Amino acid sequence: MSETASNYDAPSSVPVGVDPTRASIARVYDAALGGKDNYDIDREVLAQVRQVAPEVNDLAWSNRNFLTRAVRFLADQGGIRQFLDCGSGLPTAENTHQIAQRIDPEARVVYVDNDPVVIAHGQALLTDNDFTHFVSADIFQPAEVLNSELVQKHLDFSKPIGLLHVGTLHHYTADNGAELMKEYIDALPSGSFVAVSHFFDPETPEHSALARKMENVFVHSPMGSGMFRTREQILAFLPGLEIISPGPGKPGGLELSDMWWPDGPKLRPLSQVEQCSAAVVGRKP
């Protein structure tokens, strides 16, 4: 693995920590999921977006529910027994290690985040779990993550790994992010999987307008990030991977997060906001 430091930057590169005057990506996400580990400034971000998209909380739930299904798929059907979860956020119900270890109690999970509040909460919850660990690193600096002593200690890079970037890459704003993800993917062994969910511009008149309105508010809010990328831009995050079918009879490709192998039939139409979250899973040959 390369020791060369990556030269990527994004809002998450400077941890917010416990500063109540600055919005934190992790805390805003926590607020959207109905958690209690957030401040007024974090809730203000959602309030601002709610002015143009009343169902903004659906973005967080679309990401979270996709994570649950994707990890279950990787552990059960993909046979993955070690996971690198980038941008884990504040612990909530159904975290990656709980899903994976329900299938195999010895499945290894390494969470990566650089928010000290996230690290503190995570470590407190995992004191008795020998197969789950937290690493303090910037997920937008792949070399920092991949060369971390804890990552190297607890993940075996000679065996397949499940790399998770769920609800993270839309906060990377330096460029299109393809080279950043290529650095991660190049380090993964054959048979590994990559799961990505992302704010989505469907490139349709109705939903593109909503996506761009939300993006404008997110980027100019106290959080400072939240890009809505197109299908082509999101698929560029998985160079050289075999894209998994997102549902029965569907060819491999990008799908709305809520429609990626849903647990059952949809009895209600997707909300306008749910039309603006997409997900994809790829396997490294």
Rank of each mutant, 00 (worst) to 15 (best):
T96N: 03
A5R: 08
S88I: 09
M214W: 00
D138E: 06
S192P: 13
R231F: 00
S158V: 10
R50P: 03
P142S: 10
H171T: 06
T127M: 07
P265E: 14
S257I: 09
D115H: 06
P251H: 01
P265W: 06
P160L: 13
L267T: 11
D201G: 09
M214F: 01
V110P: 01
E106I: 08
T168W: 02
E232R: 07
H220I: 08
L33K: 08
A209E: 13
R69G: 07
W61I: 12
A143Y: 01
F66W: 02
L126R: 10
S6E: 12
D37I: 08
T173W: 01
G34P: 12
G87M: 03
L46D: 11
V118A: 01
M259G: 00
F157G: 07
R229M: 09
T21W: 06
N95E: 13
F199A: 15
P205K: 07
K159Q: 15
V145F: 11
N114F: 00
P239D: 11
G87C: 03
G79H: 14
V112K: 01
S192C: 14
V71H: 05
P105D: 14
I185N: 02
H207Y: 13
G224L: 14
M1N: 03
S257P: 12
V217Y: 00
E179Q: 13
G247E: 07
P222Y: 09
V49A: 10
A107S: 15
V18H: 04
V219W: 02
P239W: 14
S271L: 13
A23R: 02
A32G: 15
I243T: 10
G34E: 09
T4L: 02
P20C: 05
E94I: 04
S62K: 04
A100H: 10
V14H: 09
D156V: 05
R229W: 01
P248G: 10
Q48L: 15
G247Q: 09
A178Q: 12
D115K: 02
N216Q: 03
